[in-house]
Amino acid sequence: MKNQIKLLAFLVPLMFISCEGNNVEPTLFPQGEGFFILSEGNFMAGNGSVSFYSLITGEIYNELFKTRNSRPLGDVPTFIATDGTTGYIIVNNSGTLEAVDMFTMKSLGTVTGLNSPRQMAISGRRGYVTSLASSELTVVDLDLMEISHQIDIGCTSEAVLISGQKLFTSNWVAGDRIVVVDLETEEISGSVTTGTEPESMVFDKNGKLWVLCTGGYMQDLPKLVRINTVNYEKEAEMTFGSVSDYPSSLTVNGSGDTLYWLHEGVRMMPVSSTSLPDEAFIASGERLFYDLGAGAGGRIFVTDAIDYQQKGDLLIYDSRGELEDIEQAGIIPGFIRFMTDW
């Protein structure tokens, strides 16, 4: 009994010491170079999550949003747009847009009522949100964190990029074109017919728009298309070999000179190439590759969703395509957003 009293006398002051404190929010992950990963979570389960992989420590830090805000992020987060140190996370099946402090992951506000949002591009203090279900782009006032208005583009939309005053968005599901919107007038200024179901797109170092078309499910031959963003003409069109091919997740490295995408592994192609690569740069083997990112120095980061019902993996490959490390991420890890110089 005497010992217990002594222990209590020792512990009680410690409790007060530990409760004193500064108001600085503890960091959940090390600052510095790395990337965020959005894990979609189980469809309709609302357990999407945010992870950070630090290129400095070589470790992954999971469940950042839930840990910071004591609530889940929502159902199927698909995209992060950034503006300085503020991130805007699109949560597709919850129909929400979460603004967060990227350093702390603290929620700064939520926009609700978005119709199946997919991705967002920022111009000024406006966010342009694509929709899988609506033929309108939703414009969000990022200062007020509320929906401002809609722009009718006549089709559903998926990927979105802005170059100057031009917004390019892809008409993915059952579509076959890129729609261009003039941001000054917010009216359609053109469109480019690509291939069936343009799923992902990037700008290269030359300002060219590369579009990866999946071909739909067993429908048409997939295509990789290069578009001139000035005159909207197709400069190159490379066709895959079979309708059963299903390429996805086109991305580009930081220097904009090499394209990567998923197709029976990871495919790699210089932007100067005139033909598709014959073989995968990284074979998927037994893995179920879900999404990827291309980092500095040629390192490739691929997510593996396993069975879509458990926590997936982040696979880290070196510039030669050798597997360096495996880290466990959230459920259905997908979108990757690199953070440099922050």
Binding site: M44, A45, G74, D75, S94, T112
Partner: peptide, 8 residues
Amino acid sequence: GPVTTVQQ
């Protein structure tokens, strides 16, 4: 719909 932070 499910209640995933918001009621869908």
